[in-house]
C-alpha cells in the first residue's frame, strides 16, 4: 500500500523527522527541558495510539484505558522495590499483567454496548485505582518511588536522557507500525467490519466478540508498555495515573488528533501536552483556556486535527 501524498501524510512524515532529530536540536541549543517534555509526550502518544486501536478502529469506547498505564507502572515499581531490577523481567511482567487484566475486563465488558461499555470499563479502572491506593506496602495513596530505572544489562542505559528518549520513540514507532499492520491485516479488517455492522459480520460467520476481545487485549498490552516507560520516566508511580480523569486525558488526545487515523493520537498527544505546558508557563490557570479550546474543537473541527487536514487537502 503506497501512502498518498496529502496534507495529513505530509504532516505525519514531517512529525516523524522532527521527533527523530529532536535530541540533535536539544544538544545544539542545550535545551534539556524540551527533551524531557517530548519523552513524556512520546509515552502518552503510545498510550493514546493503543486507545485509538480499540476506539477508532474497533469502535470500543473504553473510558478506563489509564488503568494499564498504572498496571505497567506498578509492575515495574513493585518488582524494583522487591529487588528485581532487570528490565528483562520487569517489562515482560508489565506486559503480561496488562494483557491478563485486559483479557479479564474485556471478556466481561464486551457483553455490553454503547454507553454501558463506557461505564463498565470506567468501573474496572476505578477498581484498579482503589486497589493501588490500598497497597500500603507499596506506598498506598502516596505512590511508589522507583529508585532505580530498569536495568537492561548494559544494552541501553535508561538513565541517559537521550538514550531513554530514543527508547520511548522506538517504542512509539514500533507500536504505530504494529497498529498499522494490525489495521490492514485480515484480522483488523474483521474488527473494523464488526464496528460498522456487527450483525452482518456475525451472519457471514465471524465470531464478533472474539475478534473484539483480541483487539482489546492487544491495545491493553501496548498501553502497559507505555506504563512501564512512564514509571521509568518519572521514577515514580502512583494511583493518580489510573484516576478516571487520566483516562479522560487519553480520550481527549485521541479525539483531538483524530480518531481512526494512525497518526491522529500522536498529533493529539503533542498538541494537548504542549498546549498544557505552554499555558502553564504564562498562567497558573491553564484550564481556563484549555477547556474552552476543547469545546471549540468539538464544535467546529469534527474528526480532530487530522480530519481537518484531510478536509483541507481535499479542498
Amino acid at each position: 500500500m503506497m501512502p498518498k501524498l496529502n496534507a495529513s501524510n505530509a504532516v505525519a512524515a514531517l512529525l516523524c523527522i522532527a521527533l527523530v532529530l529532536l535530541p540533535v536540536y536539544s544538544a545544539i541549543t542545550g535545551n534539556i527541558f524540551i527533551l524531557t517534555l517530548f519523552t513524556r509526550i512520546a509515552i502518552y502518544a503510545l498510550a493514546a495510539a493503543s486507545l485509538n486501536l480499540i476506539m477508532g478502529y474497533g469502535g470500543m469506547m473504553s473510558f478506563g484505558h489509564a488503568a494499564y498505564l498504572g498496571i505497567g507502572g506498578y509492575a515495574v515499581g513493585i518488582l524494583a522495590a522487591e529487588g528485581i531490577g532487570s528490565g528483562f523481567i520487569q517489562w515482560p511482567v508489565a506486559l503480561a499483567v496488562s494483557a491478563l487484566f485486559a483479557l479479564l475486563i474485556g471478556a466481561l465488558s464486551l457483553r455490553t454496548r454503547g454507553v454501558y461499555f463506557i461505564m463498565i470499563t470506567l468501573a474496572f479502572a476505578q477498581m484498579a485505582y482503589y486497589v493501588a491506593s490500598a497497597l500500603s506496602r507499596y506506598g498506598g495513596d502516596d505512590g511508589l518511588t522507583v529508585y532505580k530505572r530498569s536495568d537492561f544489562a548494559g544494552l541501553i542505559n535508561l538513565s541517559d536522557r537521550t538514550q531513554f528518549y530514543y527508547l520511548c520513540l522506538g517504542c512509539l514507532f514500533g507500536g504505530l507500525y504494529l497498529i498499522w499492520r494490525i489495521v490492514n491485516s485480515r484480522f483488523g479488517l474483521v474488527v473494523q467490519g464488526v464496528r460498522s455492522n456487527e450483525q452482518r459480520m456475525q451472519a457471514i460467520g465471524f465470531h464478533a466478540n472474539r475478534y473484539r476481545l483480541v483487539c482489546f487485549v492487544i491495545a491493553g498490552t501496548i498501553c502497559g508498555l507505555a506504563g512501564a516507560l512512564l514509571a521509568n520516566n518519572t521514577d515514580f508511580v502512583s494511583p493518580a495515573v489510573m484516576y478516571w480523569t487520566r483516562s479522560g486525558d487519553l480520550m481527549v488526545m485521541v479525539i483531538l488528533g483524530g480518531m481512526g487515523s494512525l497518526f491522529g493520537p500522536v498529533v493529539g498527544a503533542i498538541v494537548y501536552l504542549l498546549l498544557e505546558e505552554l499555558l502553564s508557563q504564562f498562567t497558573e490557570y491553564s484550564g481556563l483556556i484549555l477547556g474552552p479550546v476543547l469545546l471549540l474543537i468539538v464544535l467546529f473541527a469534527r474528526g480532530g486535527i487530522m480530519g481537518l487536514l484531510g478536509r483541507m487537502s481535499r479542498g
Partner: peptide
C-alpha cells in the same frame, strides 16, 4: 470531550 473541557474550565 466537550464536557471534559468544561471540567477543566
Amino acid at each position: 470531550l466537550a464536557t471534559f473541557g468544561l471540567i477543566l474550565f
